[in-house]
Nucleic acid binder design. Structure first.
Lengths: 130, 130
DNA sequence: TGTCATTGAATGACGTGTCATATAGATTGA
DNA sequence: TCAATCTATATGACACGTCATTCAATGACA
């Protein structure tokens, strides 16, 4: 039978586990964010969108499907794409079959940045998670 | 010898692992945040500070040491404490030995909210991590 | 003791995320 | 075919976190 003491112990362990997830998440996200910001002038979320676009080359009307592969909100995605577009890394293409939708395409510059940033990204993941 | 293909595979796995951490972090943090917001009108960060203050009862000049036990910035902590103080859950006490420092103390209301919120918090951790 | 560096905390400007809403295009069914 | 409804994206108001800075108190050391 579970005593009060058992429950307190279990709680402590849960909280410990949570703190450790939190700190590992923040450490990793922070490291990547700072590095990308410094070297390529884009943040982590910008990179994640670039990365998604890069590896879903030429398929469905994107904005929508992007939202499904990221914890970001639809409006967050929209704004990240705004910035990427302003930075000339991505372009929105209208979609013939459904004119509400938009395709995303990497520009040359976008492809170049992504290629370099991805190396950095993977390296930092390895360093922080591996 | 590691081939290009090996490296690509390793990268994919790293990225998968990262996405899974991310989504688990966001799912858990989001669930807790929404629940605390709805039931007690405080956010996750507010709760975490309450929780830290609650379990470091009566010790060193706090603001400082709090910052060390959380991934939050010093200024973030300061602002969270602002809100907690405005909500009447916590009070800042001046510290005699070092007049730059501040103690934090839970008010009665703070203690009450914390007790209930902690139950919710642990339950949601269990549900999301367990 | 008087200067200089350091430390604990608060603050303002700013960027970015969220929620609620707006808008335009698509779909359904009478 | 026309309303009603739904769906994809954009946008504005707002909340909150960060960085840089400020301010007061402290410490160090000549």
């Amino acid at each position: 039978m579970a005593t009060t003491r058992d429950r307190q112990l279990e709680d402590r362990e849960l909280v410990e586990q949570w703190r450790s997830i939190q700190s590992s998440y923040f450490r990793t996200a922070g490291a990547i964010d700072r590095a990308l910001e410094a070297k390529f002038d884009i943040g982590l979320n910008e990179f994640e969108i670039l990365d998604l676009v890069a590896d879903s080359e030429e398929s469905s009307c994107r904005m929508k499907s992007l939202g499904e592969r990221t914890p970001m909100t639809q409006s967050a995605v929209s704004k990240v794409v705004d910035r990427l577009e302003k930075a000339g890394l991505v372009s929105r293409q209208t979609c013939a079959e459904d004119r509400r939708s938009l395709f995303l395409e990497l520009t040359e510059a976008g492809r170049a940045i992504h290629a370099n940033a991805a190396v950095e990204h993977r390296a930092l993941l390895k360093e922080n998670l591996g």
